[in-house]
Nucleic acid binder design. Structure first.
Lengths: 339, 339
DNA sequence: TGACACATTCGAAACGTTTAGATTAGCTTT
DNA sequence: AAAGCTAATCTAAACGTTTCGAATGTGTCA
């Protein structure tokens, strides 16, 4: 900017005024300055600007795994929204690891991000402290966090799983295996509650042996499914509460020589873009990823626009059961049992 | 830092020296300073540091679509690599749009990223100029760019498609539909060359009518497939040169009432994480995403470590044909034709 | 012809670091 | 005891912006 000012024979203040439109600059000087900018190929240094202004027009986004199609889709939507608003997005993947998450959030705050969208991981205590220290608005995504009372966008997980399990029950399934994530994050808790309530509402017992937990990865889903399928009285249906884990479930079913839906019905949380092209077409609980991403972005953009003092807003969206062909009716069995 | 210095009754220079270890500080003052840092909860301002140092420890990464599983995987690997190195990653999705790409690269350069990894889009002319202006190292990912002579990591696309088409030919397929991306980016060009060469090597004609192009999206694959399937003498196999488009291909096959592989064989570029779980299990050309991401990160990290003057390095990796069950042998047909 | 308002432009002080070079004090050496 | 080292610390100038308040010039009104 100094060079531009010299070339145009004006002060840097005038150049700044022209660039930002913060004061009227005479046509004559404007022309000279614009010419100088072109000649020199001047680009404003956003770092210096950030230092002075105290804002970076950059936000931080952390998710557990970007390869999880749900997060991939949400990240994509969020990125687009902030791109439109002229913000850059710093993306971090925590790999479901608490320490990694802490490091990354600190990294983002060090870089003075203007705001944070966090699909958190593990225990909330440290997150709580970090967020309190950080003087930036935070939006929780997908997962609430005890002690952190801030804007959030989540799904009505309990209801969504309730509906899915009820669907299986209505098809005649009585023993429904359930695979959950180990970590005690809110969605896992709520989904489990939905499972239990659906069974209870149907007058069915909640059997310990039918509930298996894993660590969110495909291999964990595989192992959990292997255990379920080796039970003496094995389940007729399996619900996987997590998207990548259901791939493991399908592999386990294949490896053990069974097929879906003939031998075992499968449903899971989170939809796949390709669900209705390949066989079996999985019955899933689809999250409204577009809405989730947009709402999260809007909440944060609203805070960034200056609305700092509004009370925390918690948006709860509805999931949608996508019924396909991976779950088989067990009517015959039901009748023989109830007869 | 000023407050810390005052609280510890030292100069800011001493505080800086201690924090960065750039000079020896007496144990006495060190203790006072560390105490003050704790008391105040001081965090170094990375923006001010960047301004002074001329480095942000942040890199920019642009890809066409993050929802394309290939890019999802590569982004994930790259993010991890830079995270380990203490760098932040700014992610942008260009949506295969040239103007968006320009805007985003400018946005990244404005923010003084230390380096850039670009899976480019469209015509390379503007990219060439931007990269020349920007004084940062650039690594091209997946797609080369004429006129931009810089580090790059790409696949041997020609060979990979040659192998895939040859495989189909060996199965007895004579009319092989080919769906490509419209844009004239290097991989599309090379893949097309591989297709033509494989046919020629087998003494087969390259028929215009069997080649369709689309715009990388599922819907484009759908439309292209519809056209191919409506041909009077329709192909017995279809190869889709792009990952999302093959979903469209499968939908079109389903909608038209055919099935794969019984009525038509399908193969495509880029593997899916779930390829071997669902039916049909697609035969694909798998890219070594882990290696691609790591190599790209390493190339850039090497430049960032100071190795600026080394000549541009172009890494060409090999694809791998993953043979599954989406392609059917046509032995009987072949014999009747050649008889 | 002052006095005043208004429109432009400018000088200089921030923002929070890093770092070169100056200063000081305590030793060693001759 | 003067001179020369060394180690520890400090002063002050950058980095490239924004912005406040001052300065300058021009036209209007009494």
């Amino acid at each position: 900017m100094l060079h531009v000012a010299e070339a145009a024979r004006v002060s840097v203040a005038t150049v700044s005024a022209l660039i930002n439109g913060t004061a009227t600059v005479s046509p004559e000087l404007s022309a000279r300055i614009e010419q100088a900018i072109r000649d020199i190929g001047y680009k404003r240094n956003a770092i210096a600007r950030s230092l002075k202004m105290g804002t970076t027009r950059t936000i931080g986004l952390t998710v557990p795994h970007i390869t999880n199609p749900f997060f991939t889709a949400v990240v994509s939507v969020i990125q687009q929204a902030f791109d439109r608003a002229g913000y850059a997005v710093m993306l971090c993947c925590t790999d479901e690891d608490l320490n990694t998450q802490d490091d990354q959030i600190r990294l983002l705050l060090d870089r003075m991000v203007d705001g944070l969208i966090v699909a958190r991981v593990g225990d909330g205590a440290i997150l709580e402290r970090i967020v309190a220290d950080a003087n930036v608005p935070v939006v929780l995504l997908d997962r609430l966090c005890e002690g952190v009372d801030t804007d959030a966008v989540v799904l009505d997980n309990q209801r969504a799983v309730f509906d899915a399990i009820s669907y299986l029950v209505n098809l005649g399934h009585r023993r429904i295996g359930y695979i959950t994530g180990t970590s005690d994050i809110s969605p896992m808790h709520d989904r489990m509650t939905g499972y239990c309530e659906a069974l209870q509402a149907a007058g069915l017992p909640v059997a310990e042996e039918l509930i298996r937990s894993g660590d969110f990865h495909e291999i964990d889903g595989y192992n959990a499914t292997m255990q379920l399928l080796s039970l003496h009285d094995r389940p007729s249906a399996i619900f996987s509460a997590n998207n990548p884990m259901v791939i493991g479930t399908m592999k386990a079913i294949r490896d053990i020589g069974l097929s879906c839906p003939e031998d075992i019905s499968v449903a899971c949380f989170d939809d796949f873009p390709w669900s209705d092209v390949f066989q079996p077409q999985l019955t899933t609980v689809a999250q409204p990823v577009q809405a989730i991403g947009e709402q999260a972005a809007n909440l944060l953009l609203d805070r960034l626009a200056g609305n700092r003092d509004a009370p925390p807003r918690k948006l709860v969206l509805k999931g949608r059961l996508m019924i396909r062909n991976s779950c088989r009716p067990l009517a015959a069995v039901v009748q023989s049992v109830s007869a």
